[in-house]
């Protein structure tokens, strides 16, 4: 699934570290820095600076929220999938997203924040999730395009996270990346089927879908490096390994070739090979749109959040009943 360059979800910086520190803390910090520099992994119970912990809770939980909210746009098409095969594939993919969300919540909880606190941050609007899920899924082709472009961009983002310095996050990412490749391949194959065997209307539907998802997909890598306030610290800590702009370029270079095989055009007239750079040049990205969507004013922000909040509220009696049932069983076992 889908991270955005998560350090960029808000324009504000994290709290700067406290200037006054005890000598113990300074010694611990030096030891920690040395471990990071040596490329060692940090485990949940190891000492870590507050700032590192906060950055990770924020990034991992936002990543988890993205997986969970990401089920909504695709869930929209499960009952309308064109064949039983496509429906089974889509169900499996949406179930994977739920699984990915759960691996990530579990990783975030190792940092000392409870699951309910994490949910509460999402439901109250305090925590963000990837802005891509605030766009609507208007046609069946969007299921293919999300797999190809959105999951494709997510894979570019996520592979380097398998080497993240925080080990529980890195382990979750290894598991996620192993499952992610199915998501991209099924999407591309679905689009390819329509482009090669479909009617003119189906081909037009694919092109329309690519036109709508291209720009939001390349925004998934986050704002340019020059406007990415927390990137430098995250790089130093080994939480982030490759910069937003480098990942975006890598994604575009790979995707242009794939679009040729598919037989679609990408909606950017400035997209062309630059022999000197050995990369594709591309047109200006509308960052106002990006910040607008991140800030809560995308096409579906309110709908997505409302769906999550009502799922949580409507499930409350189930959570309580399950606990009551467990307590009753325990009591009966003790009495026996």
């Amino acid at each position: 699934m889908y991270t955005q360059a998560m350090d960029t979800m808000g324009k504000e910086r994290l709290d700067t570290p406290k200037p006054v520190r005890s000598t113990d803390e300074i010694a611990l910090q030096e030891k920690f820095d040395a471990r990071i520099d040596a490329g060692e992994f940090i485990e949940a119970k190891d000492w870590m600076p507050d700032h590192y912990r906060k950055t990770l809770v924020r990034q991992i939980s936002q990543h988890a929220h993205s997986e969970i909210v990401g089920m909504l746009p695709e869930g929209n098409w499960i009952t309308r999938a064109p064949t039983l095969k496509r429906k089974a594939i889509l169900l499996a993919k949406v179930q994977d997203e739920a699984g990915h969300g759960l691996y990530l919540y579990a990783a975030a909880e190792t940092l000392g924040t409870s699951r309910d606190q994490l949910y509460d941050a999402l439901h109250s609007g305090k925590a963000k999730y990837s802005s891509i899920f605030n766009y609507p899924t208007l046609s069946w082709a969007d299921m293919g395009t999300i797999g190809w472009l959105v999951d494709g961009a997510a894979i570019m983002n996520q592979v380097p996270l398998c080497r993240c310095s925080y080990a529980p996050y890195a382990r979750a990412m290894v598991r996620i990346c192993r499952e992610e490749s199915f998501h991209q391949r099924q999407g591309f194959e679905s689009l390819l089927t329509m482009m090669q065997k479909g009617t003119d209307a189906q081909k037009a539907m694919v092109q329309d879908s690519v036109d709508r998802w291209w720009w939001p997909s390349i925004m998934m890598f986050g704002p340019p490096d020059t406007e990415s306030p927390n990137s430098e610290q995250s790089m130093k800590w080994g939480i982030k390994r490759i910069s937003n702009d480098d990942l975006r370029q890598k994604f575009i270079d790979a995707t242009v070739e794939q679009a040729k095989i598919l037989g679609v055009t990408l909606p950017d007239p400035d997209l062309r090979w630059n022999e000197a750079r050995q990369h594709y040049d591309f047109g200006a990205i509308d960052w106002n749109e990006f910040w607008q969507v991140v800030g809560g004013d995308g096409p579906c922000n309110r709908e997505r959040l409302a769906a999550r909040v009502s799922a949580w509220d409507d499930g409350e009696w189930v959570r309580e009943a399950a606990m009551a049932h467990a307590a009753k069983n325990d009591a009966m076992q003790e009495a026996a």
Binding site: D96, G99, L102, Y103, R171, R175, A322, M323, H325, N329
Partner: peptide, 24 residues
Amino acid sequence: HCGSLHAADPQMAIQLARDVYTRR
């Protein structure tokens, strides 16, 4: 060890563990 999850009781934990950690 492959991860953790929340569940109300042992039966639910086993079932969720299957769904979350052994989908393939």
